[in-house]
Design a protein around this nucleic acid. Structure first.
Lengths: 153, 153
DNA sequence: CCGTAGAATGAGAACGAATCTCAGTTGGGG
DNA sequence: CCCCAACTGAGATTCGTTCTCATTCTACGG
């Protein structure tokens, strides 16, 4: 099975931290702040952007918190471009989604495919993987385009 | 139109360099070597890997050649993970394809979707883009899984 | 409610991929 | 064949990210 884990669990907030705790992590101020900041984003976010929103979290702490949360499976490091990493809540927490990337301004936003659309994609993906001896465990779809704001200046 | 530009143009070799020349680039030894090395790969390749294969091309020259070829539209910088960029021939030259990423050994290989499968994906992708005010210009599908070699040790 | 073990923090140093600089070299149009 | 702008090469530099280590805090047992 490749796609869509479960539907958007009402308010992630709680469950994210609970998962982190279950993974044996302490729920420190920095980690709560990082999770809260990620929840407030509409798409994968750079460490620099997070650092700006979390002015009181030192950069070394921010990166360590992100690394630990990635290890715990509640945050994902995705969509690196131009040598800059972006972070988002993991699909296990935020639900499966695709990314719309504006080739002009670089913004990335999440889009949630309809269940039937994603079933179709998952089926295709699994067939391709199988044809090459792979066992598929997931897929990522990045849609490149131009956003409304950049198209009409 | 989102996907699959044209079918695998017989032997890329020539056409890649011609495109580069058409874009106003000089066909220097370093650039020929980089293109040849990329053609020999089965998937996106790191600069370090290329440097190893092209021992006589200094690292600064390698990166510059790659940057220039990316600008010319014949090479694509894709699939960065852990802060390391990977390069491959652009889809305009190599044809549209998806990526199979082994989560165990990290290898990335290209897979060419069947025309009908990719039409389906392109349609879904376009609908999603349109729903969010984007004009889609392309899509990338990364399939995460475990390769045959890693599954049976 | 308090003490404590050990996990987590914070400031800065260190690391490494990628880019830049600049003097010397070379491709290819004229 | 000549010339000059494009390109190269070695090394310095940048900057995102990770590491180090003394200090602080969390969460658990008493």
């Amino acid at each position: 099975m490749t796609g869509r884990p479960t539907v958007p669990t009402a308010e992630p907030g709680e469950s994210v931290l609970r998962r982190a705790a279950d993974a044996g992590l302490r729920l420190t101020r920095a980690r709560r702040a990082v999770v809260a900041a990620l929840e407030a984003c509409t798409g994968p976010t750079t460490a620099a952007d997070l650092a700006e929103r979390l002015a009181d979290v030192p950069i070394s702490s921010l990166y360590r918190s992100l690394a630990v949360l990635v290890d715990a499976g509640v945050v994902a490091r995705v969509h690196e471009t131009e040598g800059i990493a972006r972070f988002e809540l993991a699909e296990a927490v935020a639900g499966h989604h695709h990314h719309l990337v504006c080739r002009s301004c670089g913004t990335v936003i999440d889009v949630r495919p309809t269940p039937s659309a994603d079933d179709t994609v998952a089926g295709i993906v699994e067939a391709e993987a199988a044809r090459h001896g792979f066992t598929a465990t997931g897929h990522h779809v990045d849609i490149e385009g131009v956003c409304a704001a950049c198209r009409t200046p």
